[in-house]
Nucleic acid binder design. Structure first.
Lengths: 151, 151
DNA sequence: TATGAACGTTGGCCATGCCAACGTTCGATT
DNA sequence: AATCGAACGTTGGCATGGCCAACGTTCATA
């Protein structure tokens, strides 16, 4: 329907994990992007709000490290989140190089909304997999990821 | 070591398949890109050579569809492959809109070389997984991919 | 014979990941 | 106390990759 994949991909590719991962990631990005776009947000917003909710107020650099987002992007994303009222940015009085980013109640609520949106995306993405297979897939991926990002 | 991931990612992200896939795909791309770059090639080259070897001579549009590569990119990649002597491009006498791309013996040999290069990449990428888990992961991904690309 | 589609090709847009640079501020060394 | 290096927020730039638009050529259908 979409990629006009009437023709089948070469077996070499279909048997190569790296190729599979890349292509699945493409479809994934499309789905996630679409869902967040419909919700008036960007992917990063969810990551940042999650980090703030789980670990409390943090500097932008800490958020960058925790979410694996580039510092430059954190700047822009926080701008947007501030404007949306999901987050507050204040200078850190203890260390004046930093900003302290704090989750607002509205932001927490928005996060919960995104949870539902994202759950829908996972469902669509992993439609052909059973519940057990989904956690299996997640486990395998998590182990690969941990191995490649300093544990 | 690399992403300075001293801080852990939020659990919300680490439990979300779409996030895991995207991040694993990032690492994957880095690895694959590096390996092919060291071999003096691009990722697409492998896909195109694979298709040609498995299905025989084809038009650029057919290659595009089979490999999921945009037509514009096929143009550039075929240019490079022609220059490298891996492929021959000739006008299709039966349908003068098309070109016929044919794999040369040198191209077939290069493909076999890439097979080894890529095998090394898979090994590095999936290092923490057992052999059984690797095929398990590939199976799950293939099913997801098939579901999202018209079977 | 005319209309629409496929093809190769060029060029552009946008999202992302990475890196460089700057001025400010802090910490540690001297 | 002064200095040097590092961290921080911020701006900007580069390269990749997926996607789409447009053009002229060629074919196939009506």
């Amino acid at each position: 329907m979409e990629t006009t994949a009437a023709e089948t991909a070469p077996a070499r590719l279909r048997n190569t994990p790296s190729w599979l991962i890349s292509h699945v990631a493409t479809h994934t990005s499309r789905l996630v992007w679409g869902a967040f776009d419909a919700a008036g947000a960007r992917r990063y917003h969810y990551a940042l709000l999650s980090a703030l909710e789980e670990f409390g107020p943090a500097s932008q650099a800490a958020l960058s490290r925790r979410c694996g987002i580039d510092r430059s992007y954190v700047v822009a994303a926080v701008n947007e989140l501030v404007e949306a009222g999901s987050v507050e940015r204040a200078p850190d009085l203890a260390d004046r190089r930093r900003n302290v980013i704090t989750l607002t109640p509205a932001g927490a609520e928005r996060l919960r909304h995104f949870d539902e949106v994202l759950a829908g995306v996972q469902d669509e993405l992993l439609a052909p997999l059973s519940s057990g297979e989904r956690t299996q897939l997640a486990d395998l991926l998590r182990r690969v990821l941990d191995h490649h990002s300093g544990r």
